[in-house]
Design a protein around this nucleic acid. Structure first.
Lengths: 225, 225, 225, 225
DNA sequence: TATGAATGAGTCTTCATTCAT
DNA sequence: AATGAATGAAGACTCATTCAT
C-alpha cells in the first residue's frame, strides 16, 4: 500500500530488461527527457514550464521531446503519472496488519509524514494539478488505474481497534485519511508562505520531529475510545 | 495594514457585477482592473494568467493595466496583497478572549474552517504563491505589515486553558495553528485531486459539516489535559 | 454589374476619407500588409504562403500581421475578399441594356475575356480556393453579400434576343455564363500547363486576340436562333 | 510513354482498398505509396501535402517513401506523371477516324467531357501544377514524351469536315481543343466556387447531361460552315 | 488622465530529411 | 531490401511591454 495521501498500491511491474546502451537508445532518451521534464514542471508549473528549458538540460535536441511525447501537455501528463506512480514503489513494507491498532496507526502516520517530507516533487505536482482543477489527473487512465489500498488498510486498522476497544466505533477511514494527509501535505506544500508569514523554518529537523510527533498524537487522540 | 484597511474600506458590491471603468474615475478603473485580475490570476496562476485576458474583461484597454500597475508582476503582487488583506481583516472580530478556553478554540477552529471554505480565491493564490516559493509574499512589505494577531489570540487561549486545567501545558500556539490550518486549507486546496482519487465531493454540505466537526474535535482532544 | 465569371455588382462604398499620414497609420499599415499578402498568397497558395515571407516585404514586423489579422487563415480570407471585391470596381459601365442583343453579348463576352486576362491574381486565388474546396469562400459572409447582377443582365439580354427573334428561346443564363466564364478563366488559369504541353504562348497578343474573337463567335453562334 | 504503359498495365483494383505493402514486395510497396501519395497531393496540393500524412496511410514507415522516391518533390513528380499518363492512355481508343466528321466531333467532345468528369484527381493535379506555374510538368521528360495524338485526331476531323463542306475551313485544331477543354475542365476545377457563388450543384446528373449537350452543340455550331 | 498603435523576444510545434545499421 | 531513431531549420503564433501623443 502507499501512504501517500492520494495514492496506493499496485504491484510494481517486474523490472524491464535494460536496453542496450548504444547511441540510439530510445528508452534511455525518453527516460532522460522525462527526468528533466519533472524538474522543470515541478519547479515552474505547467504554464511556467518551457519546452526549451527542458531541451537545454538534455543532450538530445528539443525536437526529441516532440518525437517522444508529442506535446508539452502530454509530457506533463507523463510527468504526473510518473510522480504518482513512483509512490507505488515504497509499498507493502509496513505490515500494518501484523501490528496492534495503535502501533499500526503510529507507523502509518509516521510513514505518511516521512513520505511527503521526502517527496517534495510529488507534493508540488499535486499542488500544480489542483491549480488546474485536476484536469489532467481526471484525464489519465493510468492514474485512475492505481487503486488505493490505503483506505482498505486504514479501515482494517480502525475496525480492529474498535473491536479491541481502543478506538471509537463509527469512524470513517476516508475522514481519518484526510486528517492525516492534510497535515503531512500542507506542511510541505505551504512551507514557503507559512514559513514566511510566521517566521518558522518548517523543514528544520527538530521542528520536523516535533510535528511528526504532534500529528501522531493528534490522530491517536482523535481515534481513542 | 494600510493596504488592508484601504481595501476593506471599499465595500464589497453585493451581487453586482463589477462596473466597467468610466471616464475620469481612476479609483474605479483601478479597482475594476484589480477585480478582474483576481479572477484571472486565481484561475490561471501567475504564469498562466494573461494580461490580454484581464484586459478583455474590462472596458478600458490593456494599456490601462500598465498605466495603473506598471507590470503583470506588480499587478499580481497587488492581487496577492488584496486577498491576504481581505482574510486578515476579519480575524479580529471573534472576541475569543471573552469565551471560556474550549469554546474559544471551537469558535476559532470553526471560523478558520469557514473562512477557508468561503475564500477559495485566497486558498488558490496561496497555493500559487507556494509554487513560486512565496517569492512575492517575501517581497511584499504590505503582507509583512499585516501582523498576525491569530497567534496571540491562540496563545492566550492556550494559556488560559492550561491555567484552568482544561488544556495541557507546554503547547505551542504555532504548532496548534499549523494543525488547524493544514486541515482547513488542504480540504479546499486539494479538493480536486483528493476528490477525484477518492471519489468524494468535499464541498458537499453534509460532508463539509462532518469535517468541520471532525477538526474541532480533533484539535480539542489534542489540547485536552 | 461585374463581368467576372463568379462575381457581381454591389455599390462601391463611398471613398473613406484618407487617414492622416503620420507614423502610426493603422489603415495604411493594414492595407500595406494586405497588398503584400496578396502577392504571397497568389504566388504560393494558402499552404505555400509564409507569414515570414509577407513580413519580410513590409516595413512593419511580422507581429503586425497578427495584430491586424489574427491569423494566417484570416489574412487569407481577407485577401480572398479583397480580390473578389476589387472586381466590383469595374461595374455598371457596360450599359448592356442600351445595346441590341447581339452587340450586348459581344460586349459582355469581350469584357469578361479582358477582365480575366487583366486579373491574373483573381484567377489564381479562385483556383487556389477550389483546391481548398471553396472552404473559405463558403465561410465568408462578405463574399456571399456581393450579389451577382451578371445573371440578371445576361438573362435580360437573352430575353430581348429571343423576343426579337435573333436568339433561341429557352436558354438558361447560368449555362451561358458558364460557357463564357470557362473559356475566359481556363485560358488564364491553365496557361502554364496548356502552354507547355501544346507549346503555345497563350498570353501572346495576337493569339489572345484570336481567342477573344473565337469565344465571341462561339457564344453568338450558340445563341443564334 | 514508358511510364504510361507501365502504370496502365497495373489493373485498377475495383473497389478493393489498396493493400498494405508486405515484406519483400518492392513493386507493391512502391505502388502502394504512390496510390496514397496521389490522394494526399490531390487533396492538399504540393505545399499542403505532408509526407507524414502519406506515411500514416501506409503500413511501411515514412522512411520507405524516401527509400523509394528520394524526396517529397520527386514523389509529387511521379504522382503528376501517373495522373497525366492515366489520362493520355485512354485517348487513343476512340476510333475517330472511322466516323463522319460531325459524329467524330460529338464523340470527341463527349469523351473529353466524361473524361474530366470522371478524373477529378487529374483536374485537381493540373490546377495544382498551374499554381506552381507548371514547373514540374516542364521538368518531367515523361510527360513531355506523352505525345498528344489528340491534336492530330482533331486536326484530321476538321480537315475531313472542311473537305466535305460541313465545317468551315481555316480552323485551328489547337484553338478548338482549347474551346472544348476549357469548358470540360472548368466545370470540374471550379465547381466549388462556381457552385457556391451561383448556388448550383454542377455534379448533379441532370445538370451534367445538359452541360454535356451544351458543349457539344456549342462546338459543332462553332465549326459549322 | 488616458490610449491606439506597435513590437522584440520568445513559445510551442511541425517540416522534410538523414543517420546508422 | 528495409527501418527505427534522430534532427536542423523553419513554421505559425503569443507574450508582456513600450512608443507617441
Amino acid at each position: 500500500m502507499t501512504m501517500t495521501s492520494e495514492l496506493s498500491a499496485a504491484p510494481v511491474l517486474p523490472a524491464v530488461e535494460p536496453r542496450k546502451s548504444r547511441k540510439n537508445n530510445p528508452e534511455k532518451t525518453r527516460e532522460n527527457i522525462l527526468q528533466e521534464a519533472i524538474v522543470e514542471f515541478v519547479q515552474q508549473g505547467l504554464s511556467g514550464a518551457r519546452v526549451d528549458a527542458i531541451a537545454e538540460r538534455i543532450h538530445t535536441s528539443k525536437r526529441m521531446i516532440y518525437y517522444y511525447f508529442g506535446s508539452k501537455e502530454q509530457l506533463y501528463v507523463e510527468v504526473l503519472e510518473k510522480l504518482y506512480g513512483d509512490i507505488r514503489s515504497t509499498e507493502n513494507r509496513l505490515h500494518l496488519a501484523e501490528l496492534p491498532p495503535v502501533e499500526a496507526i503510529r507507523r502509518l502516520v509516521e510513514f505518511t509524514f516521512d513520505h511527503h517530507d521526502r517527496n517534495v516533487d510529488f507534493v508540488r505536482i499535486v499542488s500544480i494539478e489542483n491549480i488546474h482543477n485536476a484536469e489532467y489527473v481526471k484525464r489519465s487512465d493510468a492514474i485512475k488505474a492505481m487503486n488505493n489500498t490505503i483506505l482498505d488498510s486504514l479501515g482494517e486498522i480502525l475496525r480492529r481497534g474498535a473491536e479491541e476497544g481502543v478506538f471509537r466505533a463509527g469512524l470513517d477511514a476516508l475522514d481519518v485519511h484526510l486528517l492525516i494527509s492534510s497535515f503531512c501535505f500542507y506542511r510541505v506544500s505551504n512551507r514557503h508562505t507559512f514559513g514566511e508569514i510566521f517566521q518558522i523554518d518548517l523543514p528544520d529537523e527538530s521542528i520536523k520531529q516535533r510535528h511528526r510527533e504532534m500529528i501522531c498524537e493528534s490522530v491517536l487522540r482523535y481515534l481513542q475510545a
